[in-house]
Amino acid sequence: MERAEIFEKLNEVFRDVFDDESITVGEDTTAKDVEGWDSLRHITLLAAIEDEFDIEFSMGQTVSMKNVGEMVDFIQEEL
C-alpha cells in the first residue's frame, strides 16, 4: 500500500478514536500534537489501527514509535 493511502486511512481512524473531524496527521505528528492522545489512549488508538489494517504491532513497535511517520513504516512492514 502506498504511504499516502495509509495516511488517508489513518486520518479516519484518528478522527474516530479522538472524536474530532479536524484531525489530520502527517509524518512528524506526535502525541503532543493531538489532544487526548496520552499513554492511556495510545493502546486504544493502536488497537483501532490494527483492526483497520488487519495487522498486529509488536510491543517493541508500540513503545518505540516516535511519530506517525514511524507508525506508517511499521504498518508497511506488517502488510
Binding site: 486504544t44 488497537a47 510491543m59 508500540t62 513503545v63
Partner: peptide, 19 residues
C-alpha cells in the same frame, strides 16, 4: 510500570476483546 506492565496488560488479547 507503564512500559512493562500497563501496556502489555492493555494490549493483551483479553483486554482487547473486552474493549
Amino acid at each position: 510500570l507503564k512500559d512493562y506492565i500497563f501496556y502489555p496488560i492493555l494490549k493483551s488479547k483479553a483486554f482487547l476483546k473486552m474493549n
